[in-house]
Design a binder for these strands. Structure first.
Length: 359
DNA sequence: TACGCGTGGGC
DNA sequence: TGCCCAAGCGT
């Protein structure tokens, strides 16, 4: 049964009037005059936006493009500087792949991104979504993006009740069937904007929706219930201890986590392993350990973490434990959020210990 | 294919 | 409060 419904005309008309301004975008009126965005900006923003809100990305995009205005500048950056600049944004493999990709494009492609999905997919950190987004948005190439927004919009327009992720390929085909014959970049951004502002997961704004007359789910009164999703298992809770080691001159001991795995490549406090029961206190060095009362609670993608904090003074430590970072060089913003929480507890204790009334 | 991988905001 | 969610990718 051929599907004759098409929403691209309504969507583009709506987008021309309601496109949200973002620092990495070229507005539809300028795009209609032939202007296109900087592919470096499109790539950087799309990687930052993977599983991440526009609000969270804003500051990071500004910081990156100010500090590294061209992809060649990013390619020349130190690993530690890029990881520090990414700290707090999460999914740190993105930052490692970002740098790999920048260096490859700079060294092998003369700083120019490929224009096809097939070639883009070969680059580190660029998967099916990001390849399609760069093709459509940066080059106005014919590519259909499929992200969470598009999945939701298609599931509702066509009242697809099969649950995700099983329904993904069906939704991909529907999204492809809706592509217009021009303005691919505007169309991609239009569907995603609709999903982000009108066709939202909750508190839908159907009264403002330009395609409501064509929406099967709305007609059936089931739009808020779609898309169906297979339920996720409950997160377990893990427990551990973080060790903050302070030298008399105020320097702090930090360790670089291995590139693979959780918080890979990030600067962290030395920790016990994180297990399903309270960790035994196994001090990494012999010192005057002091247990702090407050405990860090943090939730990762697939587990909760309860992290006790212990504090000690020491003048030296074995190099395999980490390296002292001087008070002048220490920047808590370079730590991942869970480790920033540890510092927020430890620094109060250090402050109290050093206050005049204590001495 | 299914799982590992962060974080902050909303309700 | 605890759960869901956000412009996914790599393995």
């Amino acid at each position: 049964m051929p599907n004759k419904v098409n929403i691209s005309t309504e969507l583009l008309t709506w987008y021309d009037a309601h496109a949200r301004e973002m620092p990495w975008r070229v507005p539809p009126q300028a795009r209609l005059r032939g202007e296109l965005p900087d592919p470096y900006h499109v790539w950087l923003s799309e990687v930052m936006l993977q599983q991440t809100t526009v609000a969270a990305v804003g500051k990071y995009f500004h910081d990156f493009t100010t500090r590294w205005p061209r992809i060649q500048d990013l390619a020349a950056a130190q690993d530690a500087d890029v990881m520090a600049a990414w700290a707090g944004l999460g999914y740190y493999a993105r930052a490692r792949n970002l740098l790999k990709c920048a260096r490859f494009v700079t060294s092998n492609l003369n700083g120019a991104f490929p224009k096809t999905e097939r070639e883009l997919m070969k680059l580190p950190g660029i998967g099916p979504y990001t390849a399609a987004a760069i093709t459509a948005i940066a080059f106005d190439g014919r590519a259909s993006v499929l992200d969470g927004n598009v999945e939701r919009v298609m599931a509702r327009i066509f009242a697809i009740e099969n649950p995700l992720p099983g329904a993904k390929e069906e939704l991909r085909a529907l999204a492809l069937s809706q592509m217009p014959n021009s303005r691919y970049g505007d169309y991609a951004q239009a569907v995603m904007d609709l999903g982000a502002t009108i066709c939202t997961p909750r508190r839908l704004q159907c009264a403002q929706c330009p395609i409501r007359p064509k929406c099967r789910a709305h007609a059936q009164g089931i739009a808020p219930d779609l898309p169906n999703k297979t339920p996720k298992p409950k997160k377990p809770t893990r427990h551990g201890i973080a060790y903050v080691i302070r030298r008399d001159d105020g320097a702090l001991l930090l360790t670089r986590r291995p590139d693979r795995g959780l918080l890979g490549g990030m600067l962290c406090w030395p920790c016990t392993d994180w297990g399903d029961v309270d960790a035994a206190h196994r001090p990494p060095i012999s010192a005057d350990w002091q247990a702090l009362n407050a405990e860090v609670r943090h939730t990762f993608t697939h587990f909760h973490l309860h992290l006790k904090v212990m504090l000690a003074n020491a003048e030296t430590a074995p190099s395999d434990l980490g390296q002292f970072v001087t008070l002048r060089e220490f920047n808590p913003d370079a730590l991942p959020s869970v480790m920033q929480k540890v510092w927020n507890i430890a620094k109060h204790q250090i402050g109290a210990h050093n206050s005049p009334k204590e001495t």
